[in-house]
């Protein structure tokens, strides 16, 4: 555990909670892509199956349970409790175009051809592109509420901090996981355009176009 890893995890947690609270407080999920949230729930489910097979630390176990729980709570709020406010007409990204190729890639490029390892690899690849339905929705409607942009910003910061974490671990621990690093770089790049808009527009005019 290093400072980049810890702040990355906390930034990730902040993003997840910001989104949950926003939906809960406004009683609305307008502008939020339910499809991205389904993908994140799938990412956490397939990645954290090792909760059942191995214990790493109390921190690790607690964070995994919180991430999975919040992901399903968010999906529940969007598709059940506040379904009437869900903007399905603008959430039109075809997620099978992500899930199917990512599933194929996880079968072909992995560290070990075993069910848990393939599911872990699938989750790593899927996480790198899971935000695309949300970014697609924003590009389609041409706007996002400020709080939604804070959510995306925290998610992007989390990814960037994980890159620094890997650089740290490479130098100080000799740790090097090519699958996680390549997927992490791809994921961070997807947020770069958004970062630029966030810094130049959101903080200036509080409205994001």
């Amino acid at each position: 555990m290093n400072v980049f890893r810890l702040t990355g995890d906390l930034s990730h947690l902040a993003a997840i909670i910001i989104l949950l609270l926003k939906i809960w407080k406004t009683r609305s999920c307008a502008g939020i892509s339910g499809k991205s949230q389904i993908l994140f729930a799938l990412v956490f489910t397939t990645r954290y199956l090792d909760l059942l097979t191995s214990f790493i630390s109390l921190y690790n176990t607690c964070m995994k349970i919180i991430y999975v729980g919040c992901a399903y709570a968010t999906v529940y709020l969007i598709y059940a409790k506040f379904r009437a406010t869900y903007d399905g007409n603008h959430d039109t990204f075809r997620i099978e175009f992500l899930v199917v190729p990512v599933g194929g890639l996880a079968f072909l490029v992995n560290h070990d051809f075993s069910p848990l390892e393939i599911l872990w690899t699938f989750s790593i690849y899927l996480e790198s592109v899971a935000i695309l339905p949300q970014l697609f929705m924003i590009s389609k409607t041409g706007e996002a509420e400020t709080i939604t942009t804070h959510y995306l910003f925290c998610l992007g910061v989390y990814r960037a901090l994980y890159l620094f974490n890997w650089i740290w671990r490479f130098y100080f621990e000799g740790f090097f996981d090519m699958i996680a690093i390549v997927a992490g770089v791809v994921q961070t790049i997807l947020y770069c355009d958004f970062f630029y808009l966030y810094v130049t527009k959101v903080n200036a005019v509080q409205r994001f176009q």
Partner: peptide
């Protein structure tokens, strides 16, 4: 490195 072993990252 710990390929295929315990994964401590989230």
């Amino acid at each position: 490195c710990s390929f295929g072993e315990e994964k401590d990252e989230l």
